[in-house]
Computed example of a mutant assay.
Amino acid sequence: MKELQTAIDAARQAGALIREKAFVSKQIDVKSSASDLVTEVDKEAEKIIRRFITSHHPDHVILGEEGVDAGVVAAKEALTNHRVHEHLWIVDPIDGTTNFIHGFPFFCVSIAYAVKQEVVLGVIYDPIKDELFTAEKGKGAWLNGEPIQVSSERTLAESLLASGFPSGDPAGMRQVNTDGILRLSPHVRNIRAGGSAALHLAYVAAGRLTGYWELDLNAWDLAAGAILITEAGGMVTDTIGNPYEIGVRHILATNGSVHVAVKQALAEAGATGF
């Protein structure tokens, strides 16, 4: 699929800029609060991606994080307005912006392509480690050209999970997510919170994490990682078990074997977000 090469090339071009600017003084802009940080690099990276996609697919539509106002309402409205298009690119130029600002090397470029609201390819690029995760519907998932698959852990006791905390937290989701962590932590090997939803999902696909859940995320955080996991043999739903689609905001993604156990624990803790 020619769109896959477009996504790869766009991610690498944006990643080159991000890598060049990482760990140096950055001009920080603030959308709506100190927790919603946007860097000039973020904006320039999205411009690079938009230019590249538009030059190769001028009739396609792009939903990018930097083109959307801050807040849940604006994000939902933007998705509603964009998802009706047959050919839709879903872009996060830097997933993990706060990490980038602080020089914490866990951030990535995330690009997905959906046809009639179904994600058919995803690319996640970590410019610091030069790791390129790719997936195409029906063709598997790959890391730097080598096939990947989800982990083989079969019980919670063996599992390394990850989660995260939404920025701003207008709906109190941080506390809800903390309730889930407290419920699960005694039963798993450990839990991580790295600060990039897309990279966490890529790590589930690559078998580095057994599973990941988080509440109140946006389409651009999840779309590319979701297809990576399904193509790597894993399972992606919302936190109460409904199949993934691009409108999902409360995500649960695992190797499949522990999916039901994690879902049940979140339900018992009242930590599904619903």
Rank of each mutant, 00 (worst) to 15 (best):
K47P: 02
V38N: 08
N255Y: 09
V258C: 10
P166E: 05
D169L: 04
N144D: 15
V123A: 04
L17W: 11
I227L: 04
V188R: 02
T254M: 13
E118T: 11
E136D: 00
N99K: 05
S25H: 14
P170Y: 05
V73M: 00
G207K: 13
D92N: 12
E86M: 09
L17Y: 12
A223E: 09
Y212N: 08
H85M: 05
A70L: 06
V248A: 12
D92T: 11
R154I: 10
L88H: 08
G180D: 12
E245Y: 15
S55F: 03
G273K: 05
R83N: 08
T230P: 01
V30E: 08
V41A: 12
D59F: 01
P93C: 07
A45M: 09
G122W: 01
V123I: 11
G164Y: 04
R83P: 03
L228G: 03
A261K: 09
I181S: 06
T39L: 09
L88E: 02
V150Q: 06
D9G: 01
P243G: 09
I181V: 15
G140C: 01
Q27P: 09
G67N: 01
E146G: 01
H57Y: 06
G273L: 03
I181R: 09
L217D: 09
L63G: 08
G71T: 00
I48R: 05
T97K: 04
V91L: 01
E40L: 14
K139W: 03
E268M: 12
A14H: 07
M1G: 11
M1N: 10
S151Q: 05
A22K: 05
I8P: 02
I240T: 14
A269K: 12
R51H: 10
A261Y: 03
A226D: 07
V91D: 03
A232E: 10
V150F: 11
F52Y: 13
K2C: 00
V120L: 09
I28F: 06
M173G: 00
T178H: 14
N218T: 14
L209S: 12
N144G: 09
R192A: 14
W142Q: 03
D216N: 14
G67H: 06
G247Y: 03
G172R: 07
G168V: 09
V41P: 06
L79I: 13
Q175D: 13
T230G: 00
L63A: 10
I90P: 02
E214V: 14
S152G: 11
D221E: 13
V204G: 06
F133I: 02
H85C: 05
I28E: 14
